[in-house]
Amino acid sequence: MSPLVVAARAGLSRGRIELRQSFTNAETLWGYLFPTVVLLVVMFFLRGAKVPGTEFSLGAQTLPSTLGMTVAFGGLVTMASILTVEREDGTLLRAKATPNGMFGYLISKITLVSGMTLVSVALLLVPGLFLFDVFALDSIGAWLTLAWVMLVGMVATMPVGAVFGSLLSNPRNMGLIMLPMMGLIATSGIFYPITAMPGWLQAVAQVFPIYWLGLGMRSALLPEAMAAVELGESWRHLETLLVLGGWAVAGLVLAPVVLRRMARRESGSSVAARREKAMQRVT
C-alpha cells in the first residue's frame, strides 16, 4: 500500500477516534448540547409568531436556518479553534514529526469536523421534526437538497476555517473569529427574515456563506410556497451553488498555502514558546 493511502486511512481512523472521544468529554458534550437546547427553546417560544406576510410559524422557519448556521459554525469556528488549540499543545508538531503525518492529520480533522457537524445537525433536526409538523421532508428530493447543501456548505467553510485557524497566533484570539461570526449570523436571516434588513446589509450578508446555507436548508425543509418570502421570491439554488462554490474554491486554493506555511514554522522551540506564554496567562 502506498504511504499516502496508509496515512489517509490513519487519518480517517484518527477522526473516528476523536469523534468518539467528543462524546465522552464534558467540554465537547456541552458544546453539542448547550447550543441545541438554547436554539430549541428559542424556536419553541417563536412557534406562535408568524413569518411576516404569511401564516407560517417563525419558529418553524428558524429551524432550517439554524441548521445552515450549524454547518457554517462547524466549518469556520470549530475547525479554526481545533487547529489553534492543537498547534499550541503540540499535536500538530507530532504530526509533523511523523512520515505523512500532516496529511493524515488534515484528513482526520475533516473527518472529525464533518462528524461533529452531522451530530449537531441531527441533534437539532430530530427534535425539531417533533416540535413542528410543517416540514416537507417527505420526498427524496428534499433529503437530496439537504445533503448537497450540507456537503457544499462543509466544503465551502472548512478550508476557510483552517486558514483562520492557521493565522490566529493562539486559541485565546478566537474572539477575532467569533465576533464577526455573530454579526454575520444576526444579519444573514437566520433568526429573522433577511428581507427585514436594510438593502446594504442584505448585500453584505449575501457575500458570505451563512446566508446561503440558511437559504439552502430552508429550501430543503420548508414547503415550496415559503420561497415567496425570500429575496427574489425564489430558493435561488443556482446562486447558492455559485456563492458556496466560490468560497470552496477560494478556500481550497488558499488553505494548502497557508497550512504549509504554518506547518513549516512549527518546531519544538515554537511550541515551547507558546507554552511559556499560555502558562503566564494561567498563573
Binding site: 504511504p3 484518527r14 476523536e18 472521544q21 503540540g90 499535536t91 507530532r94 514529526a97 503525518g101 519544538g268
Partner: peptide, 22 residues
C-alpha cells in the same frame, strides 16, 4: 518532543498504534 497537553484524551496503546501505523 517535549509534551505538554497534546493527546490527553487518547489512551496510551491507542495513540502508539495510531502513530505507528504511519
Amino acid at each position: 518532543l517535549q509534551s505538554w497537553r497534546d493527546h490527553s484524551r487518547w489512551r496510551v496503546r491507542e495513540l502508539l498504534a495510531h502513530l505507528g501505523s504511519y
